[in-house]
Simulated scan of single mutants.
Amino acid sequence: MSKLTFVDVCSGAGGLALGLERAGFEPRLLLDEDNDAVTTLRANRPRWNVLHTDLIDFDPAEHPVSHDVDLLAASPPRVKSNATVGRADSGMEERLLEATVYLVHAIRPRAVLIENVPGLAHSDEHQRFRDFARAELAHLGYEFTWFVMNAVDFGVPQNRKQGILVAVERQRAAAFRPPTPAVQEPTTVGAALESSMASRGWRDAARWAAQADQPAPTLVGGSKNRGGADLGPTGAKRKWATMGVNAHTVGDQVPGPDFVWDPELGRDNMVKITVEQAALLQGFPESWEISGRKTSRYRQVGHATPPPVGEALGRAVAQALVGDPAIFVAGYTSAT
């Protein structure tokens, strides 16, 4: 029996696509407007059909491979809150969300998956989009549900809540169930990164890991109109500081054997998280290569859907579409 198929738009570094692949889906087409993200996708999966284009400009009629797929998946840039709608780059996020919904008209997948900020699922400020999506998708014969997932519940060492829309063709919709937490105890930053921190001979890696005894706060990629890479807003930086991490920047490499770690002496004596380590905190495998300069690489990582979350969602969608997703994932292991 053939695998389930999907189209992935606003693919970024490929976190959602990788998770869906692990759940037994096969990509027909991925697209993104960012050159570095496209390079990342092609470097890690040379056989994937990756298109370098903006979703707004994408014409499915010119790409018939996108038709007749099981799933349309999308991770558009995070929509802004009311506090940030005045920024120069605001507004495009909402247009990309709407473009994803309009794309359903053209390719008519059996299911739709959109991932974004948690508020998209329930907050009043995003009610207009939810009403728009309901009207469009109900008209096309889909039933859907909104819910929130936290990546930490799926083995990702990060508290990262995401708002999820899943729409399924009406005759199969009753079979869909949102994923349930897969782990009982959260993975901590220290557990996830101790080996990495020790890789250049730093002798204090174990002591640092013992202090980094909680999941990371949400990684934030920022926008192209924003400055250099850091680990998030003020509250997140304070949280990182309790773990002995300087969150005001992103490191170029892990500590060497002579690094003196003493957070009481200030930022210079705190460790810095590298892009590669940030990718581990998002649940990417160590082998996943992120292309571009440091700020662009970190932005790709910070915007990504954690692959374990994508996998859990893929398995839930497969369950609704075929009843037993194991049919499609025989022989798969999470180490793949």
Rank of each mutant, 00 (worst) to 15 (best):
L165A: 03
A318D: 01
R110D: 09
P263G: 00
D57Y: 06
A209W: 15
H139Y: 06
A167P: 00
F25I: 00
S195A: 08
Q127A: 11
G190S: 05
P64M: 12
T218P: 01
Q162G: 01
P179G: 01
G91I: 11
E286S: 14
A167Q: 03
Q211I: 13
E93P: 02
L265S: 14
G190K: 11
A247H: 09
D213T: 09
Q253F: 04
A205T: 03
L20I: 04
A330I: 14
P257C: 02
G331S: 08
R130A: 04
I114D: 01
E311N: 04
Y102K: 12
A206M: 10
D32L: 09
T100P: 00
P60H: 05
H248E: 09
L281A: 09
R203T: 13
N116V: 03
V7T: 07
V38C: 09
S334G: 06
G155R: 13
G232L: 08
A316K: 05
A247L: 14
L193F: 02
A37H: 08
T336V: 06
W48F: 01
L140F: 07
G331Q: 15
V309S: 01
A23Y: 01
E289F: 09
H122G: 00
D131Y: 04
S11F: 02
R170Y: 10
P306N: 04
F132Y: 12
G228Q: 15
V9C: 03
V79N: 13
G14F: 05
S11T: 12
